[in-house]
Structure formats: C-alpha cells, structure tokens
C-alpha cells in the first residue's frame, strides 16, 4: 500500500492537526493511530479524537500498539471516500475531549456528500455526528410537498422501484444460470 502521512487537511500534509505537544502536555504521552479511506491517503489521529468512533475505539482499545506499529498498520476503510474520511477526521479532532454542541452547522450542504457522510459516520459508529447528520438530512425536506421530497431525497417512484426489482431478479436469474452452467462444465 502506498501511503502518504497526512494531517487533517490534504492541503497541509506535513503535520496532523492534533493537539501540539507542549510543556503543559499530560504526563502520559498521547497515542496516535492511522486511518485511510478509498484514496489510501493516511490520516494520523489521536486516540482521544478517535474515541468518538465506537468502531475504532473498540478496535484500538486492546491493541496496545507502539507508535511504529500503529504507523505500520493503518486502519483501512476502503468503503469510505477520501474526502469524506477527511471530514470525519476533522470533526473528531475538532470535538476531541469537548462536549458536543447541540447543533453543527459545518456539515456539507450538498446532498450526495451529506448522504456519503451519513453512511461513513454510521459505519464508524460516531453517534453524535450521526445525530447531526440525520437532523440535517431531515431539515432538507422541512415544509416540502411529497413531490419535492421525492426529488430532494431522490426517492424512486413505485414504477421505478418495480422496474429495478424486475431488473435485479433478471440479473440474479442470469447469474444463477451462469453458475449452474459453470458447475456442469466443472463436473464434466
């Protein structure tokens, strides 16, 4: 895997935007872990920031990695786009050790990005951020008519759903037939 160590912003790749070490740093040095998304860009994130993610927190809590081991074994999240993972990492860093505010206005306004973020956040089990995202998704349809809701949330009509279902069945049938033919060929 080719990886580039990056901070929370791809525009500033040199150092991660984690809390700077200083004279007032805690006695026990903070540990860091590494994550990457579909784009393989590695993000260095403190264990404190990662606590927001129940999934990652569960993964790292019993690992006891050294800094080198952690660097050598970044957590791969191949199902998450790089820019989305970046947003998640930024959010975790911004809210590290802080109580989460009742609202978050920094979520993406673009619906596709917001839906991708929702999926990522749900997968990573970041409860507070998921709550904000769901509120934001709901806000998109406040005061809208059924037709507008359909458009905003890209809801297929019943006819479109039925056509898609038929297509899926057809495809599944073809695949099953192909597998049967292959199995028959193998048997010969």
């Amino acid at each position: 895997m080719s990886s580039t160590e990056q901070g929370t912003s791809s525009a500033a790749p040199a150092e991660p935007t984690t809390a700077p070490e200083s004279a007032a740093a805690p006695e026990v040095p903070e540990s860091f872990y590494y994550v990457h998304g579909k784009d393989k860009v590695v993000h260095k994130v403190s264990a404190g920031a990662l606590q927001h993610s129940a999934l990652i927190h569960g993964m790292i809590s019993n690992l006891g990695y050294t800094e080198e081991q952690a660097k050598a074994n970044p957590f791969p999240f191949e199902n998450i786009d790089g820019d989305i993972l970046q947003m998640v990492v930024d959010w975790c860093n911004q809210h590290k050790g802080k109580p989460t505010p009742p609202e978050d206005t920094n979520l993406p306004k673009q619906k596709e990005k917001l839906f991708d973020l929702v999926l990522a956040v749900n997968y990573l089990e970041i409860k507070e951020l998921l709550t904000y995202c769901c509120k934001q998704v709901a806000m998109m349809v406040k005061g809208k008519s059924p037709e507008e809701i359909r458009e905003i949330w890209m809801i297929p009509t019943d006819a479109e759903d039925e056509a898609a279902e038929k297509e899926a069945k057809k495809r599944a049938g073809k695949e099953a037939a192909g597998e049967t033919a292959a199995a028959a060929g193998d048997a010969k």
């Binding site: 509120k135 059924p146 809701i149 019943d158």
Partner: peptide, 17 residues
C-alpha cells in the same frame, strides 16, 4: 426528526417511502 405532517407527506412518495 420529522413531524407527523412531514412523515405523512413522505409516505405519499412511494410504497417504499
């Protein structure tokens, strides 16, 4: 996060909705 009116309007979009 939706109120009953919005839920009802959503239900009008499709069977799946």
């Amino acid at each position: 996060n939706l109120d009953p009116f919005e839920i009802f309007d959503l239900s009008e979009c499709s069977k799946r909705a």
